[in-house]
């Protein structure tokens, strides 16, 4: 996975993911960026406080990976996660960190290439956003 030239720092990305949506131990950091993966039994366990704590502990971006709509084992887990992330984006904007650093994506079960694309996109976005000002 490449990294845009204009990035002058090593991005740290925290990925919260439902273990049904994605569970691949190969999702590890390379020399150019660092990925911290937090596995959950369902994306509905994404709690607001933990998203904030990720930023507090130095993440430049936080990504939440959930099952596609209609495919959650608990029917509404992904919908609830999306609502929470939407709420938190506003809050993150308000406190000056920039809501664009927090994103949620639907991932089809076992689709590794989609996850790689999401990480790549997040790294590219960070080239514009820069490092986490709260870190």
């Amino acid at each position: 996975m490449s990294i845009p030239e204009q990035i002058k720092f090593k991005p740290k990305i925290t990925v919260f993911h439902c273990f049904n949506a994605f569970s691949d131990p190969s999702l590890v950091s390379n020399g150019n960026f660092e990925v911290k993966s937090v596995k959950m039994a369902c994306s509905s366990l994404t709690r607001e406080v933990f998203l904030l704590r990720a930023f507090e502990s130095g993440a430049d971006a936080v990504v939440v990976l959930v099952c596609p709509v209609g495919q959650c084992d608990y029917l509404q887990g992904n919908i609830r996660a999306a609502r929470r992330v939407a709420r938190m984006k506003k809050l993150v904007d308000e406190i000056g960190i920039d809501g664009k650093r927090l994103n949620i994506y639907n991932v089809t079960r076992g689709d590794k290439s989609a996850v790689a694309e999401i990480i790549q996109k997040t790294v590219s976005d960070l080239a514009v956003l820069g490092p986490n000002p709260a870190a």
Partner: peptide, 8 residues
Amino acid sequence: YATVEFRE
């Protein structure tokens, strides 16, 4: 086992 909870 894992416990899933709908906090809302």
